[in-house]
Simulated assay, not measured.
Amino acid sequence: MKFGICNETFGDWPLDKSLEYAKNAGYTGWEVAPFMLTDDIFSYSAEDRKRYRDTVLEAGFEVIGLHWLLAKTEGLHLTTDDSAVRTKTSQYLGELAKLCRDLEGKVMVLGSPQQRNLPSGQSMDSAMQNAAETLQAIVPVLEECGVQIALEPLGPQEGNFLNTAAEARQLQAMIDSPTIQLHLDVKAMSTESTPIDQLIRDNADAMLHFHANDPNRQGPGMGDVDFAPIFKALQDIAYDGWVSVEVFDYDPGVETLVTQSMENMKAALA
């Protein structure tokens, strides 16, 4: 089992300090939220990218890839009927694919609910078609960069588009490219009627990446979800990707979130 952690977990900690603490806790993968790097991806230079990548690699980590792809952006949207906005969104995602390649990452997790939620009056069919067209437009860039997008279902408390693994699989099928696969997240899966371990088994053929967390928005094992059957399912399907810790409630503090999440995952594996 390969364990990673998302860089926004560390807030305003310096990168060197964050990497050292994560390494000592047992993580070997580093997942990057672009907004933690810069406010303007297009002006984040080749030298900036090399410096960040080299710092992470020299600390003994692999760069997993990117997540929160559209978070903290303006004028971007995946499902809108505004074709100009969709074109701009495709261009931005294409630049993120280049960033991911430059950091030596392989996966981009597409969640970002605020930039994909349906506006009032739009049909789901229209939203799915628009999203498919937006993503289809960047398939050549993904292929060129050797990067894949992992569609992230999110529960209804987060938004109204791609609330289930089945809906994400539907969108994946509409694009029909190996560059577009599936991401599964424990907090999100906990809102589905199918048990989490069964969802993992049912979607083993498409699952590219995995986030470990709890519905209470903290780390794995810090809430009510039992991770033992979850890790059993991952082992049963011979999952060889990353299990990456992503939290949303930072109140316990960086040290507690980082160390307790790892201790809980190791205990669940045992």
Rank of each mutant, 00 (worst) to 15 (best):
C145G: 02
I149N: 08
A150V: 04
P153C: 03
L154D: 00
G155E: 08
E158N: 09
G159Q: 12
N163A: 10
A165G: 13
A168K: 07
R169W: 09
M174W: 13
M174G: 01
D176C: 04
D176R: 06
D176H: 14
T179S: 15
Q181C: 11
Q181P: 00
Q181H: 01
L182D: 03
L182Q: 00
L182E: 00
H183L: 10
H183D: 00
L184E: 08
D185W: 06
K187R: 12
S190V: 00
T191D: 12
E192C: 06
S193R: 15
S193T: 13
S193F: 14
T194D: 09
I196E: 10
Q198I: 14
R201N: 07
D205R: 14
D205C: 06
A206E: 09
M207A: 02
L208R: 11
L208A: 08
L208M: 11
H211L: 11
H211Y: 06
D214H: 08
Q218N: 11
G219E: 05
P220K: 01
P220Q: 04
M222L: 15
M222V: 02
M222Y: 10
F227W: 12
F227K: 01
I230W: 04
Q235H: 12
I237T: 09
Y239L: 00
D240W: 05
W242A: 02
V243Q: 15
V245I: 13
D249S: 06
Y250M: 14
D251F: 10
